Amino acid sequence: MAQSDPATPVPVISTDTIVIGAGQAGLAAAYYLQQHNVDFRILDAAPAAGAAWAARYDSLRLFSPAWASGLPGRPWPGPARRYPSRDETIAYLRDYAAHFKFPLETNSHVTRLAAAPSGTGYVVETTSGQGYAARRVIVATGPYTSPKVPAWAAQLPAAVLQLPSRDYQRPAQVPGSGPVAVVGSGNSALQIAADLAATGRPVFVAFDEKTPAMPNNEVMWAFLVSTGLLGVSRHSALGRHMFRSPEPVVSGDLAKLRRWASAHFIGRAEAALPSGAIRGRRAATPPLEAVVWATGYRPDYDWIDLPIIATDGSPQHHRGLTKAPGVAFLGLNWLDSRRSALLNGAGPDARRVVTALLTMP
């Protein structure tokens, strides 16, 4: 039986729209494309939808209740007032993709997005060798993914284990029982620090004391949803004010962490010391065994070969739409509003962006 020639090029698959990423933003975009009877494909580097959630820490819970976290067309199963766990979120996203039978192509890591040689539409290349041609492309790879740590982190001795928050999953990952620091002033930093403090080992929390805190309960979510505050565009006067304001943390999580006797707050981190310690505004740590960096992420769009990326690597867009006709972003922090990178905001942003793309000439 004759074998195929491995040098034979794989035929390019043509479709109307390519969605890159099968997280909540990509799945919400797929829902609206399907509603409009558009021929499309979703490409994701992972073996299943919702893979970004699978990489998060085991104890993670959503910051929004199930009733306020659903994607379009399919509410969360189970009690509406609960705050779903990480594993529940993964299951929900995978069920969502399966329920609507989206054309999802997994293990398809995109290596290049560029204009088609013909001058019309775009080409998408993947590590599998499969190529795609499309009139439209939606980049829904989620918030930035390249860890951002202070330059002085390099001064910590090699013996100090350093983990970005995306790589932290459980306390057993951090060897030893001695001092560990968690650096960051967001909700993930508080939850990870509490996870580690629960083991009894000393945890030094480099948290900026000026960070605002607010409750996270049914009353707050009813207020945010009913007033529409989460959906206020950053391009409005109120939205610009909200965008410039510090992101609040959940007051309950902050109070819970403070109750752990093994948790020690040192203030905003300022420098590394030769001993392997970190100096904060209020105090310094002892020599550390490990540091978890919950200090945010930078953009990583080197694979986009289009004039829509700024010199600092960030995508250039207005409410998700770019100057490249037919190319849009979804799922970014403050893509348009506070909810843009949340499950709560995936549907509204996707509906607006898909509608705009489909009405373009």
Rank of each mutant, 00 (worst) to 15 (best):
A91S: 11
Y132E: 10
A91Y: 00
A153V: 03
A140I: 11
P164M: 05
T111M: 00
Y92W: 10
G119W: 11
V123T: 15
N107P: 06
S165L: 08
Y122W: 04
L161C: 14
L161E: 14
A91E: 06
Y92D: 07
P79F: 12
W152M: 02
A114W: 05
T111Y: 01
Y144P: 00
T127M: 08
E125F: 05
S118E: 01
G131R: 15
W152D: 01
D87C: 05
G131N: 15
L104M: 12
A151E: 09
G142Q: 00
P150K: 10
Q155P: 08
A158G: 14
P84T: 00
F102I: 06
A97D: 09
I90F: 05
A115V: 07
V149N: 10
L163Q: 11
I90Q: 03
V124M: 05
R112V: 09
A116E: 13
Y83W: 12
T141Q: 07
P117I: 01
A91D: 11
A114F: 06
V137H: 06
R135V: 14
T106W: 01
A151I: 03
E125K: 10
F102W: 08
A98F: 06
S146D: 13
P157R: 09
G142K: 01
A114C: 07
A151Y: 00
V137E: 00
V124P: 11
R82D: 14
A151H: 01
I138S: 01
G121S: 11
P117S: 01
S108I: 00
V123C: 15
T127E: 08
Q155I: 04
D95G: 15
S118M: 12
L156G: 02
K101L: 15
T126L: 08
K148T: 06
A80M: 07
Q162H: 08
T120A: 15
A140S: 07
T126Q: 05
L93W: 10
Y144N: 07
T89L: 04
A153Y: 04
L113Q: 07
R166M: 11
T89C: 00
S128D: 03
A159D: 15
R112I: 03
Y132L: 04
P143V: 02
E105T: 14
E105I: 11
P150E: 12
R166V: 10
Y96K: 08
E88D: 01
T89Y: 01
A98Y: 09
L163S: 11
N107H: 05
L163K: 05
Q155M: 09
A158H: 14
P84F: 05
P84I: 06
F102T: 04
R166T: 08
Y144D: 07
W152F: 02
T120D: 10
A80G: 01
A154F: 09
E125Q: 13
R136K: 14
A80F: 05
E105Q: 12
T111Q: 03
G142C: 07
T111C: 02
L113S: 00
Y144T: 02
G121P: 11
T106R: 02
A134S: 13
L104G: 13
S146Q: 12
T111W: 03
A151S: 03
G142H: 06
Y132R: 10
G131A: 15
P164F: 07
G121I: 14
Q162M: 10
E88P: 01
D87S: 11
N107L: 10
R86K: 13
P150H: 09
G142T: 01
V124C: 09
A151D: 07
L93F: 06
H99P: 03
L163D: 09
D95H: 15
I138Y: 06
A159L: 13
E125T: 08
